[in-house]
């Protein structure tokens, strides 16, 4: 408890100096009798890489989907860049979403479309955001180059390996140049080497565009490399917060369980 208080103090300090881009307050979400999220709160500061770790089935995806309005929370406040998304209409929500990149757990590439069409898809609605006369062609190629897959332009997702799919998905997430990127288990389902490649790519992007990232994972290696700060989601609530080092040194058995190798 002392530690948590310490963290909270540290938070307060940060708050004064840094801008909060994303905030969850007292979020509750249940499916029938399954109370997935109980009083979950969290803040994401500008430019930081926040890792939320939790067992599978602990409600990480539910939490992140509530963040972008894909799911409706039962109660609680969700504030994204000073907007309470629960009170937004569809149009302003869409405009806000253009500033949030979302990398889905299984890549979620549209498998009836080519890589090019996949990347063009977000531009259908949000091309306005990028200004006057953007050339979608160059945008798409540039985004693909960023992830090193320019040659896959006219392939179908099914023709790509899992790692390549993930990278294409990343390129699709980046094409709108979001200010916040939400990663839902970016390394899940990939072999360690490919996972590492993805992590390096994520770091590159963070440097290049100075984005704020919320990374959800149950992969300790991933967290170790990328986390500026971590939150442990246990029993539907923010059980512990801190840097990787702080949490890995914790004596709490529930926390310890995550870092056992």
């Amino acid at each position: 408890m002392k530690k948590q208080q310490a963290i909270l103090e540290k938070d307060k300090k940060k708050e004064s100096s840094e801008e909060v881009v994303l905030e969850l307050q007292d979020l509750n979400k249940s499916f029938d009798d399954n109370h997935v999220l109980k009083h979950f709160s969290m803040k994401l500061y500008k430019g930081e890489n926040l890792v939320v770790m939790g067992k599978s089935g602990s409600g990480k995806s539910v939490m992140i989907k509530c963040l972008v309005g894909l799911m409706e929370a039962d109660s609680g406040k969700i504030i994204v860049m000073h907007h309470d998304i629960t009170s937004l209409n569809q149009e302003s929500l869409d405009i806000l979403r253009a500033d949030i990149g979302f990398l889905f757990q299984g890549s979620a590439l549209y498998d009836s479309m080519t890589v090019r069409e996949n990347l063009e898809f977000p531009l259908r609605h949000h091309y306005k955001k990028l200004g006057k006369n953007v050339n979608t062609e160059t945008l798409v190629i540039e985004a693909l180059k960023n992830v090193g897959l320019a040659h896959t332009l006219d392939l179908m997702p099914a023709e790509l390996s899992g790692g390549m799919q993930r990278r294409v998905a990343l390129a699709r997430t980046l094409i709108l140049q979001p200010k916040i990127i939400l990663y839902d288990e970016p390394t899940s389902g990939l072999d360690p080497i490919t996972a590492k490649e993805i992590i390096i790519l994520m770091q590159d992007i963070q440097k290049k565009y100075n984005t704020s990232s919320l990374i959800i994972t149950h992969d300790v290696d991933c967290a170790r490399v990328i986390a500026d700060r971590m939150i442990l989601l246990i029993d539907g609530t923010n059980y512990a917060e801190g840097t990787f080092e702080e949490l890995s040194a914790s004596k709490d058995p529930k926390v310890k369980a995550f870092f056992k190798q």
């Binding site: 894909l70 869409d94 979302f102 889905f104 299984g106 979620a108 498998d111 898809f121 977000p122 609605h125």
Partner: peptide, 10 residues
Amino acid sequence: EQIDAMEVSG
């Protein structure tokens, strides 16, 4: 989650 992906891309 392709349907979700569509929704977040506007």
